[in-house]
Write a protein that binds this DNA or RNA. Structure first.
Lengths: 283, 283
DNA sequence: GTTCCGCATGAATCGATAG
DNA sequence: ACTATCGATTCATGCGGAA
């Protein structure tokens, strides 16, 4: 793989074979959920989902470094009034495959899908499952610290309005010196619950997650120059963030249209697009 | 069972046999988690947990009405760097027992336990698993509606700082008349994510959950005069809330001290305490 | 009556130390 | 080696006392 961003077009069950052993520091992806996005990805029924995913997770286990992490964004749908159990069965099966199920983060979707049903509320959360190969893995906790609760309530009142309105995720880099001096002492480690809005802009992809999501995990589990992999790339949000954060990346998608879209979102001097017909095409 | 509040002292595997078939509208409980609260409840190791719980859930299935709901509050702990899988195995086993796994609510604990570890953040959420006997169950959604987001964003800005900093869950009860007039028009249905702080005040029970938690589910799944059951009553929070909301209730606990504590928290004219020696003792 | 400050207190988890 | 116990770490909350 080249440094910078690499895009592979094709079924990830095949394309993953091109990725060398122990070469990836972080896998972060959101595969098609069971029976959803059927027009683009073919749709996997719930009772076949584990069987479909295990060969993929076997490849992921191979390409991930010992110190690396795999973040899987998934949520079971409702079938006949019940939540499906395929996600739980997948976790149990992946443990038998050799994965450690280290943690389950919760993505709380602040603006979840609207709707009303007689015996169910709106679903406002998804699972972010963390898997590892080894109990010892790289984690850079300081890179995702957040303002403390009391700090936000009291100290922030004295700041200017423009400073207050800035994106909290950019705190620590965007402020002036005088304020950032406080920050080192007035910040706390986050928890395993993430509060993010879903992407509501008009992307041409059916299930784009917000940039903050891959950004948080890329900051937390990798350093500059590390390799990030998204085997279900979609419109390429993970790669865009990886490039901005100076990480190398590999994206795979079976839909050529998405691959070209992802390439245009990357900077002109990054992004190697590997077509089926040609060996690879540098830009 | 009498109307009002009933307290049974003893192991719920035995005491549940005193509860008639199809007589309970809502079960809401928080059993001792695996290997926790060992001093008071003996502690069940993770690999024995399913086996320990299934006879209890079998009784619960018997006493619950067809239209009733079972809410189970639980969270797996970390063992050897991994999350235990016993909760997932319990869900799968309870489905085989005849339960429908209808939904999983998330309790986001705003004040979670502190701590810092090299490869893990603080755990800020617990599972609230909803089980049912039947696809059709009673749900009274209007009784738990919350102020709309827009209301909080715009109207609340004009209020005092202390009011703004209050727990949003108390909005609607703590405000003055002039504001509560708006509430009836500007409310929305909640989602399946609950934001509540844990009770860390000086109760003599190690793990009392906040009153808002049983209150939310009692309002959502029962009406006045319905029967609520908590087979792991603890200090009796569920019964106190049920009494306040004019529901009948049954509480069971193996620790006599907790049962007496619960009785003192109930009003003098409610609360039948069934001791082992005497048939029952009315107050 | 308010507001502010200080303090104790948890359904935690890891690594080291002791049996 | 494998298990039991202990200290260190850390922060939102609600209480009491004081201004």
């Amino acid at each position: 793989m080249n440094s910078g961003s690499n895009i592979l077009i094709g079924d990830c069950r095949e394309q993953l074979k091109l990725v060398p052993d122990n070469s990836v520091d972080l896998i972060v992806t959101s595969p098609p959920y069971a029976d959803q996005r059927t027009n683009t990805y073919g749709g996997v029924p719930p009772d076949k989902y584990v069987e479909w995913f295990l060969p993929i997770s076997e490849q992921l286990l191979r390409v991930l470094r010992e110190s690396g992490t795999f973040i899987l964004n998934i949520k079971e749908k409702v079938v006949a009034g019940e939540r499906s159990t395929y996600v739980m069965e997948l976790i149990l099966a992946m443990r038998r495959q050799g994965w450690l199920w280290t943690e389950e983060f919760i993505w709380h979707k602040k603006n979840c899908y609207p709707g009303k049903w007689p015996n169910r509320f709106r679903d406002a959360w998804e699972r972010l499952l963390q898997f590892n190969k080894n109990r010892r893995f790289h984690m850079y906790q300081e890179s995702v610290m957040v303002p403390m609760g009391e700090w936000a309530d009291t100290r922030l009142r004295n700041l200017s309005t423009t400073d207050r309105l800035r994106d909290p995720s950019k705190v620590g880099s965007g402020f002036g010196k005088n304020i950032s001096n406080w920050l080192n002492r007035e910040r706390a480690y986050p928890t395993n619950v993430l509060h993010l809005a879903t992407e509501c802009s008009n992307r041409n992809h059916s299930a784009a997650f917000p940039e903050e999501l891959p950004e948080w995990f890329i900051r937390l589990f990798t350093q500059e120059g590390d390799m990030v992999l998204d085997p279900f790339m979609g419109s390429g949000t993970t790669l865009v963030v990886a490039e901005r954060l100076k990480r190398n990346a590999i994206g795979i998608d079976i839909v050529p249209e998405y691959c070209r879209m992802a390439k245009t979102r990357l900077s002109p001097f990054e992004g190697y697009l590997l077509e089926e017909e040609e060996e690879y095409e540098s830009s």
